[in-house]
């Protein structure tokens, strides 16, 4: 049985590593592998940890690690999340039994990267707590950590400039999502921080390819294009919304005080 899975896994990896992987075939292979895994004795709930079981567990871990890579290639985020959580149980719950996987840093870094790209920062920190200290220096994890710091500091331009400098091709997918966010944030910041800015600088800040893109963006955001410079007009609609929110808060609080006072008296 194990040999079946092993050869299947080798097939799947070979297909994935080929320059133009046939993704439909990979998916089919993965499904077959998963079915084969259900028949391994060591993976049954409540199985005792014999030497055979340990090697079977390791095999299952390898299968799911490969599945994570396949999910990235097919750009299927729900399946990515599912497979990462499967792999994590092998990493952490069997930490004393299984030898550390060589790809652990890569996968955990990728998962952190996903949370950053989805702007789920609270979960990012929860996940980060789980990453063992020795893995924090791993290039993939460190990359995600650095990105998070740059994001909180606001160094969006640095992120955009280094967008193609990813530790592994698999990071590119999330990096693209992140770039969209970073560009939007930069535009937001520029709007508030500058009165005027010339087009070339803005183009560089946003890492846009040519100045026409800047013009389109200016149209969308209501900036005034004045020759080669851009003037950021005061936009009050945002402040009105903030004001309304403040008033609602104030009303809510006052009602609360009234209610509590009523109860005391």
């Amino acid at each position: 049985m194990t040999t079946n899975v092993r050869s299947g896994l080798a097939d799947l990896r070979k297909e994935l590593e080929s320059p133009k992987p046939d993704l439909a075939r990979c998916k089919k292979l993965l499904v077959q592998l998963k079915i084969a895994l259900t028949q391994l004795a060591g993976l049954q709930p409540g199985a005792t940890l014999t030497a055979d079981a340990v090697s079977e567990l390791e095999l299952a871990r390898d299968v799911y690690e490969t599945a994570v890579h396949l999910s990235i290639l097919t750009e299927d985020i729900p399946s990515f999340e599912r497979h990462v959580s499967l792999v994590k149980s092998y990493y952490f719950d069997y930490a004393n039994v299984l030898p550390t996987s060589a790809r652990a840093g890569h996968l955990l870094g990728l998962n952190l990267m996903r949370l950053i790209a989805q702007n789920r920062i609270a979960e990012f920190h929860t996940e980060l707590e789980l990453v063992p200290t020795e893995l924090r220096t791993d290039s993939h994890v460190a990359y995600a950590l650095r990105l998070e710091q740059q994001l909180t500091d606001g160094a969006y331009a640095t992120i955009l400039a280094n967008a193609s400098d990813v530790p592994d091709a698999s990071f590119q997918f999330f990096m693209d999502t992140l770039c969209v966010t970073a560009r939007k944030e930069t535009a937001d910041c520029a709007e508030r921080a500058y009165e005027v800015l010339d087009k070339t600088t803005l183009c560089r800040l946003l890492s846009l390819d040519d100045e026409e893109d800047v013009d389109t963006l200016a149209m969308e955001r209501g900036w005034v294009v004045d020759g080669s410079t851009i003037r950021f007009g005061g936009d009050d609609s945002g402040e009105a919304a903030v004001d309304l929110e403040l008033s609602m808060d104030l009303i809510k609080r006052n009602m609360e005080y009234a209610k509590e006072l009523e109860r005391i008296v």
Binding site: G154, C189, A190, R192, A193, Y194
Partner: peptide
């Protein structure tokens, strides 16, 4: 350059009241 970006974000978040002259 990075300082400029950090300042820009701080202004956006309302940490300081300032403008940047590029």
């Amino acid at each position: 350059a990075e300082a400029e970006a950090v300042v820009a974000k701080a202004i956006r978040d309302g940490v300081t009241e300032a403008t940047i002259d590029h």
